[in-house]
């Protein structure tokens, strides 16, 4: 039986466990055994983005120790994978052993939709999901990993799902981690436009592949009292047959 090791983003673990369960369900349906190291916490991205590299390194070392042996690591977040792929190796520029481990791990770490489409060659997962949805390109998935078409391909194969494009799907939603709290006015101006574009698209749900953006967008949708749901793509792909 094929095995995949699940790297669960800390935000998903804490705020949207059902999305991670959906990831597990998708892999089960594909006949995979799913490993999920119980000790995992965070890859270090928040501290790294804030400039606290020593603290980020501590988290990154733990991550590498926990996942270093895994054959294939799958993570349902573009920004976590961008961290592992691009920034973690750079964090260990001065430590050759850790750097080598970081590079090996990076080469085996994939974002969820990228793993399904590019590695496994699957786009029809037999899912069904009634309704009209629009897809938000998260910045690090799109520009950090170059993943644009894979999630759309997956969504187009979902029974009953109508995919509509919003205006500027690739424009940042204004989350940016600590940015959303430190610079609330700018962050709000960004998400207000995003919410408007989602509303204009006529979609009943906005789907994305990064929980940070989705929680941010949903927080704004809810405050505005709009009935549009924000879903991780795994939640759609796990939708019943």
């Amino acid at each position: 039986m094929d095995t995949v090791t699940l790297f669960v983003p800390c935000l998903m673990d804490a705020f949207r466990p059902e999305a991670a369960e959906a990831v597990v369900a998708v892999f089960k349906r594909l006949g995979f055994a799913v490993h999920c190291p119980a000790e995992q916490t965070c890859c270090g991205q928040p501290a790294f983005n804030a400039g606290y590299r020593n603290e980020a390194r501590t988290a990154a070392r733990r991550f590498l120790r926990l996942f270093g042996d895994a054959e294939a690591i799958c993570c349902p977040s573009g920004s976590c994978v961008a961290m592992v792929r691009h920034h973690v190796p750079a964090l260990f520029d001065g430590e050759p052993d850790w750097r080598a481990l970081a590079l090996r791990t990076a080469a085996r770490t994939f974002e969820f939709t990228e793993y399904l489409v590019d590695v496994l060659g699957r786009d029809d997962l037999g899912a069904s999901f009634p309704g009209r949805v629009t897809y938000h390109d998260s910045c690090h998935l799109l520009r950090g990993l170059g993943v644009r078409e894979q999630p759309r391909r997956l969504l187009r194969r979902v029974r009953g799902l109508e995919l509509v494009e919003m205006k500027n799907p690739d424009c940042c939603c204004g989350f940016g981690g600590a940015f959303s709290v430190k610079y609330p006015d700018i962050s709000t101006a960004l998400v207000a436009d995003k919410v408007e574009w989602i509303r204009e698209s006529g979609a009943e749900a906005v789907v994305g592949a990064d929980l940070g953006c989705l929680l941010h967008i949903e927080g704004a949708l809810r405050r505005k009292g709009l009935g549009v749901r924000a879903l991780h793509i795994a939640q759609v792909l796990a939708g019943g047959r």
């Binding site: 669960v8 998903m12 673990d13 804490a14 705020f15 949207r16 466990p17 991670a20 369960e21 597990v24 999920c36 119980a38 995992q40 959303s180 709290v181 430190k182 610079y183 609330p184 962050s187 709000t188 998400v191 207000a192 929680l215 941010h216 949903e218 927080g219 704004a220 809810r222 405050r223």
Partner: peptide
């Protein structure tokens, strides 16, 4: 504070009663 900036314009998601890793285990 210092997180109040978020909720000026957005609701904040609640922490799940049972995080994923515990459910999985």
């Amino acid at each position: 504070p210092p997180f109040s900036g978020w909720t000026k314009s957005r609701d904040f998601p609640p922490v799940a009663a049972e995080p994923f890793r515990r459910r999985f285990a």
